[in-house]
Design a protein around this nucleic acid. Structure first.
Length: 480
DNA sequence: CGATGGCCTACTATTAGGCCATCGGTGCAATAGT
């Protein structure tokens, strides 16, 4: 059966979306493949379809449990029963049973952390693995160094599994990040399919504001004004919660916040309500995003800038997947980038803490002041690496921290330069991906596009919506 | 760093200001206790 027939008969689609055919043919001709496909292209088809033409199991490494659940359910709905997600949702006995019978499954979903368990590797080694898939592969570069170091060990895992044919999928990765992915996976020969990061139907705006009060007021004005649904991104949980409060006072009722501090049930509820259209606006931290497949998001506002351009593009890419005009607005108050500086520094142990672990033999959990989970993971990971390489652990860990902080500082500088430049926004971000901007309508604020086109289409009768935002603010917020 | 919230004080009855402490993101797996 050829891939077009399979697409029709097994998946019920008439034609491939951009990049799917290239990726699938590349895999089927036996090439390790890295595909950067536009958001909303249907990346999962790129491994699901070839799975039926290859002998053996497909291993899918996924960053989030919720993504794994989505994918397994999607497959099961289509009638594929040979699917399992090996994760902490499984009870001890269930996990053992699954590991003992892995050859029953065609699709095996795992987290990078699971792939560090010897028992799991042992079981996978008994299998014929036809394809090793790394979904959201930019996580190797973005999360792998500090937040989830097990991402950086996927190359070793792949070797232990006999270096199977490999597919890395992502929507947003600069050349540097793509190299990072290839190095991380220890892929030497690879076919790369890189499609444009540009999303021509998204108008990109940056607005500079005087202070936080102005910004708050502008947010309320924009959200009230814009065609919905939309997403507002914040760098802090509390800021997201407060914005919901203010928006509701301003008459935007169907709005809720979403962040990593909420319990799983609440998060699922909000996500579901947004997808089904019960909510118009979600005020979220970066926790909200991966796996949000909603076609008709009309705007993405950044109340705080993200820590780097890739995150920004990833986040605005959640707008306009249906191809209709959508708006991305970044609100910037000079100094906003400081927040990310502090968040970054918080992530790493200081020299005193590292010294306790390396030179005084104190266990990570007994270090004073106590280490966060992320700090512990970072320190333990690189201590082990230093010991393996037989070099001074204190200096190694300390240098790693400085290197990563510097890397993050460079990324921050990049996005600050971008939003401060008086150059076409689109030309600016496309250059980071070695692309040239094509002429287009609805480009950006520098090119002179007005946000008026994105106004809510329903007739606004509530009088407060016609107030100037300063009057609105004065009424809503107590005097300073 | 910088925004915010709680607390104290002053000194008079309700609120204002100053000071200090706190907080600031992303998630896996495993574990303890209900």
């Amino acid at each position: 059966m050829n891939i077009d027939q399979l697409l029709r008969e097994q998946f019920g689609f008439d034609s491939f979306r951009p990049g799917q055919r290239e990726t699938i043919e590349s895999i089927l001709s036996g090439h390790n493949t890295l595909s950067m496909l536009p958001t909303g292209t249907g990346k999962s088809l790129c491994y699901q379809l070839p799975a039926y033409l290859l002998q053996g199991a497909v291993i899918v490494v996924s960053p989030l449990l919720s993504l794994m659940q989505d994918q397994t359910e999607q497959l099961k709905r289509r009638g594929e029963k040979r699917v399992i997600a090996l994760n902490s949702f499984l009870q001890y006995e269930e996990k053992n049973a699954a590991l003992a019978n892995l050859n029953r499954y065609k699709f095996i979903f795992l987290s990078p952390e699971m792939l560090q368990i010897p028992q799991v590797i042992q079981a996978l080694r008994q299998l014929q693995v036809s394809l090793f898939v790394v979904d959201e592969a930019h996580c190797i570069s973005q999360w792998g160094y500090d937040f989830r170091p097990d991402y950086r060990l996927l190359g070793n895992v792949r070797n232990e599994l006999g270096s199977p044919l490999t597919l890395a999928l992502t929507a947003t990765a600069t050349e540097k990040v793509r190299n990072d992915i290839l190095n991380g996976l220890q892929l030497h020969t690879v076919k790369e399919w890189v499609f444009s990061v540009n999303r021509p139907n998204i108008a990109v705006h940056v607005e500079k504001l005087q202070d936080q009060m102005d910004k708050q007021a502008r947010l309320i004005e924009l959200v009230s004004f814009f065609q919905k649904p939309g997403i507002v991104y914040f760098s802090g949980r509390r800021a997201a919660e407060e914005a919901v409060h203010h928006l509701k006072q301003a008459g935007v009722e169907r709005t809720a916040f979403y962040h990593g501090g909420m319990d799983a049930g609440d998060r699922l509820l909000i996500q579901h309500q947004f997808l089904t259209g019960e909510l118009d606006v979600v005020c979220a931290t970066s926790a909200f995003g991966m796996g949000i497949n909603k076609e008709n998001v009309r705007f993405v506002i950044h109340y705080h800038m993200p820590p780097q351009m890739e995150s920004y593009l990833q986040e605005i890419g959640r707008a306009g997947r249906d191809g209709n005009p959508s708006a991305a607005v970044l609100l910037y108050v000079p100094g906003d980038e400081k927040l990310h500086e502090f968040i970054a520094e918080m992530e790493f142990p200081d020299d005193g803490q590292i010294r306790q672990m390396t030179e005084h033999g104190i266990a990570a959990r007994d270090v004073q002041p106590p280490l966060s989970e992320t700090q512990t993971r970072f320190a333990v990971h690189y201590k082990q690496e230093a010991e393996r390489k037989n070099i001074n652990p204190f200096r190694y860990i300390s240098q790693k921290r400085e290197y990563l902080l510097e890397r993050k500082a460079i990324k921050r500088k990049e996005i600050v330069m971008w939003l401060s430049a008086e150059e076409c926004r689109r030309a600016g971000y496309m250059r980071l991906f070695n692309e040239k901007r094509a002429e287009q309508q609805q480009c950006c604020d520098v090119c002179g596009v007005s946000l008026a086109a994105f106004q809510e289409k329903t007739v606004i009768t509530r009088s407060e919506h016609r107030e100037h935002w300063r009057d609105l603010l004065a009424r809503l917020l107590p005097e300073k």
